[in-house]
Write a protein that binds this DNA or RNA. Structure first.
Lengths: 132, 132
DNA sequence: CATCGTTATGTTGAGCAAAACATATCGCGC
DNA sequence: GCGCGATATGTTTTGCTCAACATAACGATG
């Protein structure tokens, strides 16, 4: 087996673009929706993800603006100070984009295994290949 | 059909990591190998890709260092000033990583189509869906 | 009507990767 | 041995994202 290749691992980033805007949706926003869905609060979601509230808020702003979709129902004031929940559209994005991402992840793993196999077998018969 | 979704397109980045090094190989280095293979020169390849020679050289340095593989045969001096060609290993990386990338690209497109379909059909029977 | 916790939003600073700039080295051919 | 064109490599500038900081608005509740 070709040494060195064992330590290597594939990584990928997936996102959606729309014209000028570099990334209208991707893993970060997906995680954010997920956290909001679990916590019922934008600030709590931000803290959970280890990002600033400022960034979380800005991300949502950009996503909703670019997609022209209302992802969240947000409310200020009240006993709890406020709350945020996903709209039906938001839930749909969370669910379906998650599936999309999972499918790509699966393909990357499979493609990587194929690649590994090809990189290794391509040297069969090269001599000096002492097995374990 | 849900409006807005037509303008959206999926993008992805794929790369290989090894421990501490963030990216030991990816699309940029693949393109670079490809251009070197076509031009027979590192500087010509850099110009072709619109990147500085400094960056191209550094990328090769990092890749060869992290992978512990000799990707290029480089020569200085001579009438032409110098030249650079891919080693057999270099050609193998070019070919096989290209296939890996192509497979992932295909999966992304397919996954995106599935996603699009799900995002659109999920609203059938919602009323107000006046066709073109 | 004062309090409290959350949403809302502008502003400034820090960190990092790429671009830009600057030289040095090599070696064949004339 | 001088020149040309490509490789080799250190240094400086910049540009962009995210973190950090600061402050306002909101509104149910006691």
């Amino acid at each position: 087996m070709k040494r060195g290749l064992e330590k290597i691992a594939p990584r990928f980033k997936l996102w959606l673009e729309s014209g000028k805007t570099a990334s209208v949706f991707g893993d970060g926003k997906w995680r954010l929706l997920n956290a909001i869905n679990q916590t019922g609060s934008l600030s709590a979601a931000a803290e959970k993800l280890g990002i600033s509230y400022r960034k979380a808020w800005g991300d949502i702003r950009n996503a909703e603006g670019a997609l022209k979709v209302k992802l969240l129902d947000r409310h200020r004031g009240g006993k709890e100070g406020g709350r945020t929940r996903l709209t039906e559209e938001g839930k749909r994005w969370l669910r379906e984009y998650g599936r999309f991402q999972a499918a790509v992840d699966k393909a990357v793993r499979a493609g990587y295994q194929d690649w590994l196999g090809r990189m290794q077998t391509a040297r069969e018969g090269t001599a000096g290949e002492k097995g374990a």
